[in-house]
């Protein structure tokens, strides 16, 4: 290593500053200290605070959906008929008030609208963040908390891929679905058989478990962000929010991850 003293001595004295035009800057910047009055962006049509509320509401809808979905999934530990009857009930619920699959279609439409809004807002928020930060990125954040925060777009994209995979696998029974996939027939659902067939393929089970971990990371930071976005400033409200931002994702992770583990170990077959 070179002696630091050498570095100092080797440093050439900076060339005298010549006056030259300062693109994008006030000519008097060096004397007034004001470089420009131009803003980073004109007042945005959809303000960022609105985008953040959209993210918070749609993200919370997802979180509640996944929580209820997880509780339904636990029926797999009762007996096959329990899960299958539940799966069929979801399609016939509130008949004749709602048509066949009425409840499911309402949920699908709400979730799809939320997904589109969530992703659109995420993209806009990220691009504004990048512009406001400028060319010198923040460096040196290594703690665990910032890991989740920094990777929201990455974990979100994994979740999107997972959602598509999951729909093909267990809802549509196409492409990635197990070879013995059984569609609903004559009032009989085969949710139990399909789940077991799918998770018996270990790479699929591994992908599910990975996606659940990713969901945990995304939700743990996401729900904590909801606390800020919905304006919770009180000490107690924030403490409750912080607790729920840990507890809800943890419950979703544990409840769901038991299923592929149970199938792989033969507890459920």
């Amino acid at each position: 290593m070179a002696d630091p003293q050498d570095v100092k001595d080797a440093e050439p004295a900076p060339a005298p500053t010549e006056r030259r035009p300062l693109p994008g800057a006030e000519p008097a910047a060096l004397t007034t200290g004001r470089v420009r009055d131009a803003r980073v962006r004109p007042a945005p049509k959809v303000p960022s605070w609105v985008l953040k509320i959209i993210m918070a509401v749609t993200g919370t809808v997802f979180a509640l959906f996944v929580l209820v979905h997880m509780i339904g999934n636990l029926k797999i530990f009762m007996d096959p008929e329990h899960l299958n009857t539940y799966a069929y009930w979801l399609r016939t619920a509130f008949e004749p008030l709602l048509p066949y699959e009425g409840l499911l279609w309402i949920m699908r439409i709400v979730l799809l609208v939320c997904l589109v809004a969530h992703i659109a807002a995420a993209v806009m928020i990220s691009s504004r963040a990048r512009a406001s930060r400028g060319t010198h990125k923040r460096r040196g954040m290594t703690n665990l908390r910032s890991f989740a925060a920094r990777n929201m777009l990455v974990t979100g994209t994994v979740l999107l891929a997972f959602i598509i995979f999951h729909l093909l696998d267990l809802t549509l029974g196409k492409a990635v679905a197990p070879s013995g996939y059984q569609h609903i027939e004559n009032g009989q659902a085969y949710a139990y058989e399909n789940v077991v067939a799918s998770f018996s393929r270990w790479p699929v089970a591994a992908f599910y478990m990975f996606a659940l971990l990713v969901l945990f990371v995304h939700l743990a930071h996401g729900l904590w962000t909801v606390v800020q976005d919905l304006g919770a400033t009180g000490r107690r409200t924030r403490a409750v929010g912080l607790f729920l931002a840990g507890a809800i994702p943890l419950a979703i992770l544990l409840g769901n991850i038991l299923i592929p583990i149970a199938v792989l170990t033969g507890v459920v077959k």
Binding site: P42, W49, T225
Partner: peptide
Amino acid sequence: QDFGPCSSFGECADVCPAGIPLAAIAAVN
């Protein structure tokens, strides 16, 4: 017009020399 959206990194309250509590970021919304 100049500043970015908040994603709850929490870095601000760690460096703030005035010790402004993180709850301030929620006060904006």
